[in-house]
Simulated assay, not measured.
Amino acid sequence: MAIKTLNNLYLDVKSEALYGRYVTNSDLEKWLETIPRTWLSTLGYSVEGKPVYGLRIGEGPKKILLWSQMHGNESTTTKALCDCFNLFLKDNNVASTILTNCTLMAIPILNPDGAQRYTRLNANGIDLNRDAQNLSQPESKVLRSTFDAFKPDYCFNLHGQRTIFGAGTKGHVATLSFLAPASDVKRSITPARKEAMALISDINNHMQTEIPRCIGRYDDEFNLNCVGDTFQGLGVPTVLYEAGHFTNDYEREEVRRLLFLSICQGLFSIAKGFSKASYKGYQEIPENVKNFRDIVIKNAKSIIKDETLTDIVIQYREDLKNGVIQFTPIVEALVEPKTFYAHREIDAEGTLVQTDEKLEIQLGHEIDFVLVNNKKIALKPKNNSI
């Protein structure tokens, strides 16, 4: 019921202030001007003095802490999170159920310096998701002090993942992935982890109607320096969300909608209550596998005098240029046929593939165009072709 209602409302709650892959504090502040000031606080400051904003809403007894853009170049969940908060401005059953039963504390951009640079790391070159124990960075301290003061009953750790992940081994892309982090090296099923597993299973069951077979389960190798592992170990059910890829959606606007649905569904499930016994369904979600690439040119000859057929694997590098993320095609590998699935397949049909200057394909080279049997083909995404 929640998914259908949310889909009907989505276009009315999608924030116009946030779009694409490059989302910074400046973009967020435009959106913050549209929401009630009573929701907003400044929780602290980044290495370079940028504010880390917090949003608090709801009056219910179930407390949920959500944070996004811990890695500065993982912006899709920030867009979706702001869309979720726009929902709370509307008169609808989903919002009222959540706000009556829950109190939310959200950090839309934890790493504003990394967001400005479009980098995973903060301004000191530190991965905040490996700083849960040392707490060496001001942003890490903001998150931990918020956690300690708010005393959440649940945590949503919102991230983005590369386009290389499939949901299992059968050629389905991991558009969304989830993880109930381990809290020890044995990956024990503690009460907190079991509850996180059950919640993920519930979200997965609802989201299968939107993206069947395209939800994966992230690797649960334990690392105490990771925030999710730490919070799970402190007895708070913690769910990791990963924004993945959807066909031709390199701006991740369709994935944004799917994340909006899944975040709201998670909140709604907590508000209404969900079966803790459903945790076994978590293990049935296929594991993430690194078996996708952006482009594969299959059945190709890559050397002029060699008749051997190979697959030419091309992966995009994300570059920040003039405030826009550009996707630069890089030749990653020449491999045996059918090694990888691809978001875009080009069948060379046994013919020669060269650069547009009629040179042989070389590993590591940037390559915006190829000649396939002397036909010129552009390799950049259609919505990023400049």
Rank of each mutant, 00 (worst) to 15 (best):
Y282L: 03
N157W: 03
L179N: 01
E29Q: 13
R217S: 12
Y250S: 05
G266V: 02
L40A: 07
D229Y: 03
I107P: 00
T209Q: 14
A342W: 13
Q116P: 00
G72H: 05
N101F: 01
D356P: 05
T209R: 11
G244W: 02
I203Q: 04
N86L: 11
F156M: 07
H206M: 03
S262L: 01
Q116G: 05
S68L: 14
G235F: 08
N299Y: 08
D148G: 10
L359A: 13
V236T: 15
N129Y: 06
P237F: 00
Q116M: 14
Q354P: 00
H71F: 04
Y19S: 14
D27Y: 15
K141Q: 14
V142N: 04
N204T: 10
K4M: 06
V331M: 03
L363A: 12
Y316L: 09
I330M: 05
Q137Y: 05
Y341C: 07
E357G: 11
Y218Q: 13
K376C: 07
L66Y: 05
I361D: 07
F150H: 02
R252H: 12
R37Q: 13
S275D: 15
R344G: 09
I314P: 01
L258C: 02
K62F: 02
A17P: 00
L224W: 00
V173F: 11
G60V: 01
T351M: 01
N129K: 08
D113H: 08
K4H: 14
T77G: 15
I295M: 10
D148N: 15
D202K: 10
D131A: 06
P108N: 10
Y279Q: 06
Y118V: 14
P138L: 09
W39C: 07
R56M: 10
G364C: 07
P337F: 03
Y218A: 14
D131M: 02
S262T: 04
T339G: 11
T77Y: 05
N124P: 02
C82S: 08
I303E: 13
N373G: 03
D12V: 03
E366N: 10
N374Q: 14
G49C: 04
T310A: 12
C82N: 00
A80P: 05
M70Q: 10
F165D: 06
Y22T: 13
D294R: 12
L359V: 08
F260K: 06
N129R: 07
A378S: 08
Y250K: 08
N157V: 04
S188N: 12
N86E: 09
V324D: 15
V236M: 00
F150D: 02
S183H: 09
L135D: 07
N7Y: 08
H206F: 03
R344N: 10
F178K: 01
F178I: 01
T308L: 10
I312E: 09
F246P: 02
A123R: 04
L89M: 15
K305Y: 10
N322R: 12
V372D: 04
